[in-house]
């Protein structure tokens, strides 16, 4: 059986989930800090902490799930990515740790400090940047294999227009997704001031987001033509749909209509683009070293992973629904009537 396709689909779904809820979280941190600096914090901080307090830890698990899963399903990725990602991986880890812990210190501790909020807000933008570097490396061309082991070509990476366009796309997407969600949340909370501020932010970030997407496409053509051709040749319709969803989302928020639907459109916009990107990249996880048809874990282990995964989902999905019903979809909680 083709366990590798089950594996990669599962992992891609989890990575997608992490990108969405991580983006909401990262962006919210930045907005909270920005609001504090511009003395608008009284407007949105309640709203943000009402959403973030119960979910931040769960967000982190999605990430852990992804990297444990990828090593589990494709042990070769531990070798190739592990050998090359020491520095970018460590940077991302340090940022993630600072952010996670200072978030807790800021929110659960006795006192609030601007410097803590700064650490929390600034890392929110740097983390997506450092993660996106890893996606860039996966594109291939920055790793060489010698008899001593595999090495990352730093200079090539730093000078690559493709790498930089991905970094900017990641940062702007974070702000876009986050403000999109918080607009919906503020609207649900009937928090007019916060709603106007966030809607404004959302509309501001929509334009550069769509422009930078084009840059990514163009530089991908320069960097990995096979991938580009595959994306444009076989999966153009997914990217086309993505643009359609984008237009609907922006239009809905611009005309202040159906905010829940608008956020679903944002989800679909990123979903179609992300799966289009992923599908067109296959069969390589890391071009040309990790080919999912060859690098998959042995059959017995793959089977047990799939079984455990299904059992795990039976446990997790109801729990997640409970969490969402208690916090995100509970109208009274969102409005701040329940603590």
């Amino acid at each position: 059986m083709d366990y590798q396709y089950i594996g990669i689909t599962v992992l891609w779904l989890f990575l997608y989930s992490y990108i969405i809820i991580g983006a909401i979280d990262f962006g919210a941190g930045f907005f909270a800090f920005h609001a504090k600096l511009t003395k608008q914090d009284h407007i949105i901080n309640n709203l943000i902490s009402r959403y973030l307090n119960p979910v931040w830890e769960v967000t982190n698990v999605f990430f852990v799930f992804f990297f444990v899963g990828i090593v589990g399903f494709f042990p070769d990725s531990a070798y190739y990515f592990g050998s090359t990602l020491l520095i970018p991986g460590s940077v991302a880890l340090i940022l993630l740790s600072i952010r996670g812990s200072f978030y807790a210190f800021e929110n659960y501790g006795q006192d609030s400090k601007l410097s803590w909020l700064f650490l929390y807000g600034a890392t929110g933008l740097l983390i997506p940047a450092s993660f996106s570097t890893i996606l860039t490396i996966a594109e291939g061309g920055y790793i060489t294999e010698t008899s001593k082991g595999v090495h990352l070509e730093w200079l090539d990476l730093l000078l690559s227009p493709y790498a930089w366009s991905v970094v900017f796309l990641a940062i702007i997407s974070v702000l876009y997704i986050s403000s999109g969600f918080l607009t919906y949340y503020a609207n649900k909370a009937k928090d007019t001031e916060a709603y106007h501020l966030l809607r404004q932010w959302f509309l501001i970030w929509a334009v550069p987001m769509i422009i930078i997407c084009q840059f990514v496409f163009l530089s991908l053509r320069q960097h990995n033509e096979d991938h580009f051709n595959n994306a444009v040749g076989s999966f153009w319709w997914l990217f086309g749909l993505s643009v359609v969803f984008f237009i609907i989302a922006v239009a809905l928020i611009y005309f202040k209509k159906a905010h829940g639907l608008a956020f679903i459109m944002i989800l679909l916009q990123f979903g179609t683009a992300f799966f289009g990107y992923g599908l067109s990249k296959l069969p390589y996880l890391l071009d040309p070293f990790i080919n999912i048809d060859k690098a998959v874990v042995n059959d017995q282990m793959a089977l047990s992973l799939v079984i455990v995964f299904i059992l795990g989902l039976l446990l997790l999905v109801p729990s997640l629904i409970l969490l969402l019903r208690l916090f995100i979809f509970d109208a009274d909680y969102v409005k701040g009537k329940k603590k």
Partner: peptide, 23 residues
């Protein structure tokens, strides 16, 4: 891979209910 994967599930489960517990 198997115990590592299961550890993540257990952690996930704990994280969700800890959030619920605290709030």
């Amino acid at each position: 891979a198997l115990p590592l994967f299961m550890e993540t599930f257990a952690f996930f489960f704990e994280a969700i209910f800890l959030s619920i517990y605290l709030y």
